[in-house]
Design a protein around this nucleic acid. Structure first.
Lengths: 338, 338
DNA sequence: CTGTTAGCGCTTTCAA
DNA sequence: TTGAAAGCGCTAACAG
């Protein structure tokens, strides 16, 4: 069996050239005669030579690799975001490592610490924790590893952030429901302490305050990532009180709410309105069609990646705090009848 | 500003030890005195030393990295599969690179060729092309880079494959519809030449044959990844013929079919039955609830990853052709009335 | 335009 | 149990 990899030395030998000349053939400078370059490239192909990237990374301390760290992946929002990131990375000739934390803060810490060694040139992250101690992230600075947040951010860090207008979109959604006569609203949230949960909740609260809704009619319902747990919370709520409308801060909770309403024979939108943050492409096919606050997920990823590559190219990003607009799409689940 | 990374040399110097001793402290062998090891580890922490992985990769030709290559990512099936793969990789202490081809065969070739240099120790792939010329894949063998296919495979290669029972599940689905009296069936497919499209189509055809359906009543409809194109194909079909049931070979086509039926006021399941391969977790919330053939997506990823890691550990996989069962879940979209 | 040479940071014999 | 030394494959400064 032939050798697994041939080295630059062997290629040089086969061509009766020095390794440096051969090396030059693989870079885009004009410090080599075109004919020589051609010769080398041909021979390389013939012999199946590929530069060993680990040797070259070692020399240059450049890995042409970035990392994406996020709470979950199997989900419309995150998979779209990663798609956007990966595309930009490919365009820049970079490779993309992904890491899923399963929403576990400790895993996030572990993963970041595993990147201190210079495996990647930069990191794009959606945060998994509320976390107060962000030293493990700030330590990246001393290693010159830039980081860009998207969607779920740590507000107390000064890394660039790409988010959506969480406060405004939720305010608008609630405002709309209240304008149309809803008197009791419930806001379903998974974690009030994470950036987006908090911003959305504030938007909700402020809209309710604007309409002078008694606090008891503006309910914040703490749910979780567990479907059954959230469902039973919601079921209990709907059984004990008449709620006019629900705003779900994440898609998963809208699904739980739908399912509860279906089982309990509560009619959407007749008995209750429902709107949710969601990137479902088939919201219009649900029963009833779901009103959504749709984040530009892929674009969020693209923007975050572009900022990161700007930094890697040595450019200061013009805007370290990009806020993209979400689309509120009213469908039948928030229809009013007069 | 302090140095970005400190090297083993500097750490050794600080401890008045040799680099080889320091190096030993970071491996799990008993060729170093426990006390010395402890001392080194402590000092390393204090000084923020992390072994440079590129130097160590170079020495060992081991990158502890695998690649996942797939046609798309923003999709329930693939994001679940990747989730499974990434989890197994993390458990094995490996890193996961992802590459999305956008269903472009040429991109797949490019990506694979970019991995000839040894960047990864192994590859897990769902194929993007029908492709006849798979030399670029077989070339991985000479580089000792193992590959495992999942879902979309190249049948003419002898790499391990993890797939689902595409033929059987589609046969069963068609059989069920025919048993219940459907006389004209349409099978929506994107590419008859890719492994899964083909296997599913064969299952469909054989079921129709079993029921002696005239060929003209067992329609194969060529669709595409483009929503509008597929929709208009389906619309045309439904306008020109009375179809009793549709089997969609991928989720995307079911969505198109739903939308067409909605727009054309064709009632599911009264006017037409619909069943689709799909990993939608909310199939039961659609209008009407969608009958699905659900592949164990995450498990597919886990199995493929486990086979790859077996190979990397030097074990011959016991089964080079794993076939997992899909779940056929009948919901309202295939309900019959008597 | 090409070659010589040193060295990136680490690991692993081999010798002590 | 530790250290000395060679070398993984590549690149870049320098000399020619």
């Amino acid at each position: 069996m032939s050798k697994q990899f041939i080295s630059i030395k062997e290629l040089a030998l086969a061509l009766n050239l020095s390794t440096s000349t051969v090396s030059r053939a693989f870079r885009n400078k004009d410090d080599i005669h075109p004919d020589t370059k051609k010769l080398i490239l041909e021979k390389a192909k013939e012999l199946g030579y590929y530069p060993n990237i680990y040797a070259s990374n070692l020399r240059n301390s450049k890995s042409r690799t970035i990392a994406v760290i996020m709470p979950e992946l199997a989900n419309n929002f995150f998979s779209l975001a990663v798609k956007g990131i990966e595309r930009v990375a490919q365009l820049n000739g970079y490779h993309t490592l992904i890491y899923v934390t399963d929403s576990l803060y400790e895993k996030e810490v572990e993963i970041i610490e595993d990147l201190y060694n210079g495996r990647v040139e930069g990191i794009i992250m959606s945060a998994s924790g509320e976390g107060n101690d962000h030293r493990y992230i700030n330590k990246l600075k001393s290693k010159n590893i830039p980081l860009v947040f998207f969607d779920r951010v740590y507000d107390d860090t000064d890394y660039p952030k790409v988010t959506t207008d969480d406060y405004e979109s939720c305010f608008k959604a609630a405002d709309y429901l209240l304008d149309n006569g809803c008197k009791t609203l419930a806001f379903l949230v998974i974690d009030k302490n994470v950036s987006i949960g908090n911003a959305r909740m504030k938007g909700f609260e402020d809209a309710c305050a604007k309409h002078n809704l008694p606090e008891d009619n503006a309910l914040i319902i703490d749910c979780s990532n567990d479907f059954d747990e959230s469902s039973s919370r919601i079921r209990q709520l709907l059984k004990t009180r008449k709620i006019d409308a629900i705003i779900a801060s994440v898609e998963r909770l809208a699904v739980a709410a739908y399912t509860v309403c279906l089982n309990e024979n509560i009619k959407i939108p007749e008995d209750i309105k429902l709107i949710s943050y969601s990137n479902l492409s088939i919201a219009h096919l649900l029963n009833p069609p779901l009103s959504t606050i749709a984040q530009p997920a892929e674009n969020l990823g693209v923007n975050a990646a572009e900022i990161l590559f700007d930094i890697l190219k040595g450019l200061e990003p013009t805007n370290k705090n990009v806020i993209l607009k979400s689309d509120i799409i009213q469908r039948k689940s928030t229809q009013f009848f007069r």
